[in-house]
Write a protein that binds this DNA or RNA. Sequence first.
DNA 1: CACATACCCATTGACGCCCATATATTCCCA
DNA 2: TGGGAATATATGGGCGTCAATGGGTATGTG
Lengths: 153, 153
Amino acid sequence: MDLFVSKYINKIDKKGRVSLPSSFRNILPKANRNEIILYKSIKTPSIEGCGVGRLNEIAKRINNLDFFSEDYDDFSTSIFSEIITTNIDKEGRFLIPEELKIYADIKTEAAFFGQGHYFQIWEPKKGLKNTEDSRRRLLKEKKSLRMILTQQK
Amino acid sequence: MDLFVSKYINKIDKKGRVSLPSSFRNILPKANRNEIILYKSIKTPSIEGCGVGRLNEIAKRINNLDFFSEDYDDFSTSIFSEIITTNIDKEGRFLIPEELKIYADIKTEAAFFGQGHYFQIWEPKKGLKNTEDSRRRLLKEKKSLRMILTQQK
DNA sequence: CACATACCCATTGACGCCCATATATTCCCA
DNA sequence: TGGGAATATATGGGCGTCAATGGGTATGTG
């Protein structure tokens, strides 16, 4: 398994530390298992995160843009300056930067939601509500989950 | 991690010294960890900086411009002749040359913005506003940040 | 000599590293 | 196969180290 899946709710201790779910840690490449990157989700009041490996891919893509164009600066600023790297201690815990906690309204507990190649961190109640809303939207639009889950390639 | 990421706001002391964020220092090659280059950003009222090694990369990019265009001379002049090297002391601090401080309107605090292979130094309020503006431009143009952040190769 | 800057030392708070415990899970063997 | 032991995970807390900051003094250069 090399995808972030499932959801977990973990406590944030006095020092502000929170455990990255074990199954998430195991997905990080052994080489960089003690570092992740975090950034504000664009569409939701949540934090998104993933291993640092993805950062290099992003850098490569941005570097391919015209260096003297406006886009280059916009992407570079919006992405690199907004990304925060944080270290994972030997027990598998990390610190959520204050700014991101405020953005996601996270206080004493953090809910982790696997999203495949990345994961989201929510204030638990908001996160669960978002899950329900998502599912409801899907069904409403008659996009059959069943179809997606059971169809053959 | 070998990229300049995140943002930091540091104070400038009476002597004009300011700490280069620790994570930025660690990116500089051990060989030249006590020296960086600074120059005026071409498109914004900010200072750009990087390790001395990056000079070659800048030269390459300018060389890729049409040699006979006006841009070539302009960029070449604007950048190379304006580059200033400055030393980093044992505590990780350096002096921002007066001319650059004036150009960026920096007085008592300096905001450092990671930009991947280089970084920018802004007057804090202006820098934060610039980040917001960048993001707004990107979203407005429906250029999906999310795609860059999460897509697979 | 005056000013700027490099070098040295000190302080504070944040963070990393280490150890400890409780609960849950897996493993192994009788 | 049942039960106890070993292991893993989430969580709590002590303490040393480092980053950011402040300031004194030496060095140096015009």
